[in-house]
Design a protein around this nucleic acid. Sequence first.
DNA 1: GTGGACACTTACCAAATGGTAGAGGGCGCC
DNA 2: GGCGCCCTCTACCATTTGGTAAGTGTCCAC
Lengths: 217, 217
Amino acid sequence: MATATVAFADKGVAGTSLDGLATELGVTKQTILYHFGSKDGLITAVVTEAAEELVDALRTAIVHSEPGWARVESVVRASFALAVRRPELLGLLREVNRLGPPWSEVVLELLQPLVDRAIDYLADGMAHGRFQSGDPQMVLVSAYAVVTGVVADGEVLRAVGLDLDLRVAARLRRTLLSFLEAVLLVQPVESATAPGDEEQDDDIVGGSEERAGRPAN
Amino acid sequence: MATATVAFADKGVAGTSLDGLATELGVTKQTILYHFGSKDGLITAVVTEAAEELVDALRTAIVHSEPGWARVESVVRASFALAVRRPELLGLLREVNRLGPPWSEVVLELLQPLVDRAIDYLADGMAHGRFQSGDPQMVLVSAYAVVTGVVADGEVLRAVGLDLDLRVAARLRRTLLSFLEAVLLVQPVESATAPGDEEQDDDIVGGSEERAGRPAN
DNA sequence: GTGGACACTTACCAAATGGTAGAGGGCGCC
DNA sequence: GGCGCCCTCTACCATTTGGTAAGTGTCCAC
């Protein structure tokens, strides 16, 4: 399963054949099929295990931290630890997206409680002045995207001349914490937002040019 | 090519068959092979076009904006516009990561100048006091991750009970801009960083438990 | 009206895919 | 020793994969 997790995460489920997996493990394809019944069975097992592991890691980070900003820090720390130590987990999470149901449902079901809890936590903190008020959903999604994005998009790191190692991960973690700090922590200063902030949000797609698809070939 | 771009981006290159693509287009597989020579040929054409389109969009956003914070805003705006209007482009960019060379080289080569320019721009701004000093590479990578992450990980948005539409994209854009604003814009206040910020960064993987891979099955 | 380039087709093909059936082989239990 | 269970193997199989070869129709130049 460990081998399959890595393979699924970085070659994709469709790009991973049972034969290839079996060869890598030094067994035959039929041995895999014996244990998991089918490729779908293997996928289910791998995805479930990965999701559980992920949830465990996050839950541990929550439980082992004091409420408040320290908890945010703890979760971020745990996320980056996971990103460095077991990048397959985050990669697989991303792969599950494209698999769609029923596997996405498995993950969603496991992660949902944590996500809800996180949003409640942020929203509550904002309501009671522990956090600066803002958009909890968006903050959470953004933070998630930063963590997984950097793990999955190694190419992008290469583009800025870096590789994902401990040092880089730590720098990135610090940057993400700066983001969150700036958005969440209550600042003694008034101007939390810059001038010209109240824009209308209807023009996000820009002008009217080329709104339809491009011609084929 | 438009059809292939979408298919590659959301089912993956390995998960997209020429037969499937051809059926969707109402032609036969051989027609595709006639025009592109091979599947690799199609991939190359699609990837190249997508990368060029991406670069064009960003370059336009840069050129059509005043230097300073407005330029950052313009690029973010253009990125989100792209994310809403042509999510395949960002999805494909991500897929290229796992394809590896030679396709990743194509994209890298096209994006590199823009990336370098962006980092120089940020670094220069920081050096001259227009931006708060920080880690330009990490800021850039984080911002990129937020944009593409949300496009690619629709499941995550669903987890917080949202779908990627114009309104949500605008909220997200505002959140990202808050992040960047907080990190980049020079604040009149002293405490740009929170207490307890000077942590050592060697413990990112956490404790010593389970550092090795998990047992198979 | 005929030759040729072009776009697309049908007919095949070898290899790889996920999956089934059945035959050992090792090991504990009686 | 023999029985049964667990595991893995060899042997096949139908389907799908990317790719080749050889037409077929159409349109344009001459």
